[in-house]
């Protein structure tokens, strides 16, 4: 995965490049806005990490210009500015996520992966533990064995896998289902029961996949790797 890191602080940039490479990214570093623009024009990237306070061309301007040519490239703003105005300005300019310095690298990595999952790059196929899933064919396997999934079960699994490690609410599940004609309306009391039924079924089918659907009290569900 190609990642562009536009950050002017050399020490931070150096460490980030190392950490990202260790996480499996191919990293290009731009120390200022002009270089970032040049690299964006010349190369294909899967995701961009952008500092707002870049020399020469500001991060916001880089982002605005990028959005004129590429509307879908995921951009995460990494900045020292954290006021509501800055946040709103960044998101309005077309950023997909916003993280303030200082941060924990795992947090940054998780957000980058979430961005990537949402974008084309990883949409075709996702894996977790012994579970793999292909969106093209709407199919999933555990240890290479094909799973028998109803359309709703697949939508549910897709949602959980796309947001792995994060909470999915019943509301979100119902929204994902509402694309299907057969789905009951979200406000329906039966819908919530249906979610529970489908989660139950999915848990059974995922046995042996080394993944677990965890129930989060009062909120929803979360897909994670089974703990040893």
């Amino acid at each position: 995965m190609n990642l562009l890191l536009a950050e002017d602080d050399a020490i931070l940039a150096d460490a980030l490049c190392e950490q990202m490479r260790a996480s499996g990214f191919t990293v290009e570093h731009a120390p200022n806005g002009a270089v970032a623009q040049y690299l964006l024009a010349k190369q294909q990237f899967d995701v961009v990490v952008l500092d707002l306070g870049l020399p020469m061309v500001s991060g916001i301007d880089v982002l605005r210009q990028l959005r004129q040519t590429d509307a879908s490239l995921p951009v995460l703003i990494l900045t020292a500015l954290d006021s509501l105005e800055d946040r709103v300005a960044g998101l309005n300019a077309g950023a997909d996520d916003y993280l303030t310095k200082p941060f924990d690298f795992p947090e940054l990595e998780a957000r980058l992966r979430a961005l990537l999952r949402r974008s084309r790059a990883l949409k075709a196929s996702t894996e977790l533990g012994q579970l793999s899933m292909q969106r093209e064919t709407r199919s999933a396997q555990v240890r290479g064995e094909m799973l028998e999934l109803s359309p709703r079960e697949f939508d549910l699994l897709d949602l959980l896998l796309t947001h792995q490690g994060r909470v999915i609410t019943k509301e979100q599940i119902n929204q994902a289902w509402s694309g299907d004609r057969a789905a009951p309306s979200a406000s329906d009391g039966a819908a919530t029961n249906a979610v529970e039924v489908y989660i139950h079924r999915l848990r059974r089918k995922l046995e042996g996949a080394q993944v677990a659907i965890r129930t989060v009290r009062g909120l929803g569900y979360l897909l994670e790797l089974e703990r040893a």
């Binding site: 602080d9 020490i11 460490a15 310095k101 690298f105």
Partner: peptide, 11 residues
């Protein structure tokens, strides 16, 4: 302080 601290932390 944020940026240098972020650098320090990452390093």
């Amino acid at each position: 302080l944020r940026t240098p601290l972020a650098g320090l932390k990452s390093q």
